[in-house]
Amino acid sequence: MSRIKLATIWLDGCSGCHMSLLDIDEAILAVAEKADIVYGPLVDAQAFPEGVDVTLVEGAVSSREDLNNVRMVRARSRIVVALGDCAVTGNVPAMRNSIPAAKLLHRIYVEGSQTNARVPNQGVPPLLPQARPVHDFIKVDYHLPGCPPKPALILGLLTELLNGRAATLPVVKFG
């Protein structure tokens, strides 16, 4: 059996879900036996490759760049997993959603700034009007909520997927 191509991507989130992934401790070795991690903050790849088997998406879709990324992820991945509350519900990044993006940026970068008070518009991707869960934009195959999701749950899901089985999620909890 050929090795599974596994990718992870970090959108608008705190990276805690990636930490939780690392928290599977030595089990990562078993994962590494079956899969190559082809893209993500944990590896050095520069571009998201084609033909990925499983992609774990952390974070809400918050900016234009996030949106382009999830669309690319969907186009290039067989299975997409929304990992953690931000990807599943919007969570903390979505707490800005009742405030118009322009007003929010002005409050922080203009009103809240002592020097160089201006809204950054270069080198940073423009914000979407709201930060929203991944499944608002693309089809998501598995939702694994939690803030962060428990390492054991991540491992359980990965083990099933890496063995080519359709995973049934155990009891999962938001938060």
Partner: peptide, 10 residues
């Protein structure tokens, strides 16, 4: 495990 309806974010 997820909410299929659009969040209202009031």
């Amino acid at each position: 495990a997820s909410v299929r309806y659009p969040y209202r974010y009031p």
